[in-house]
């Protein structure tokens, strides 16, 4: 067992983990944060995307010990504490950007990370930013629309 201390969604969490514990299972099973999903086990599908120090990573291909001393943000912290949806969540809701919802946490976290990097993307850029996130339900069209809409809302709010 290795002791780690990870700041998860703003709260410092200390735990003993086996070195082989993947970050996603640490989040799901030890911390009970089940919003992060496992889809493929091979870092292909992106359902497990979380933020590590503010950037998107695939938590199925990361050991919990690698997150020691760092900040992790999961889908559970994307909305405001009072339940107000993040502009991305709101846009996914309005544009029917999800069907079964399983890939959605990963899509949202990937998009949230990308929009920090590029707040005013083109459609092609949004599609490229999602190359590591697979969805089997939507055909992506409404996901892309949702992200473009949210980008507009977010950059509009800032300016």
């Amino acid at each position: 067992m290795t002791q780690i201390a990870v700041t998860v969604n703003g709260t410092r969490r200390e735990a003993d983990v086996e070195p082989r514990t993947l970050l996603v299972y640490f989040l799901r099973e030890q911390l009970g944060l089940t919003g992060t999903n496992v889809g493929c086990d091979t870092s292909s599908c992106g359902a497990c995307t979380v933020h590590l120090d503010g950037e998107s990573v695939k938590s199925c291909t990361l050991l919990a010990v690698q997150a020691d001393g760092r900040e992790v943000m999961t889908i559970e912290a994307l909305a405001e504490a009072d339940g107000t949806l993040h502009p991305l969540q709101d846009a996914f809701h309005r544009h029917h950007g999800l069907q079964c919802g399983y890939c959605t946490p990963g899509m949202l976290m990937a998009a949230a990370s990308y929009l920090k990097e590029n707040p005013t993307p083109t459609e092609a850029e949004v599609r490229e930013s999602l190359e590591g996130n697979l969805c089997r339900c939507t055909g992506y069209q409404n996901i892309v629309e949702s992200i473009l809409d949210a980008a507009g809302q977010m950059s509009g709010a800032k300016s």
Binding site: T42, R127, L130, E131, G139
Partner: peptide, 13 residues
């Protein structure tokens, strides 16, 4: 696995 069975992404659809 999904690395060999090719489910397309937003880049291909």
């Amino acid at each position: 696995s999904m690395t060999q069975y090719l489910i397309p992404s937003a880049m291909e659809i």
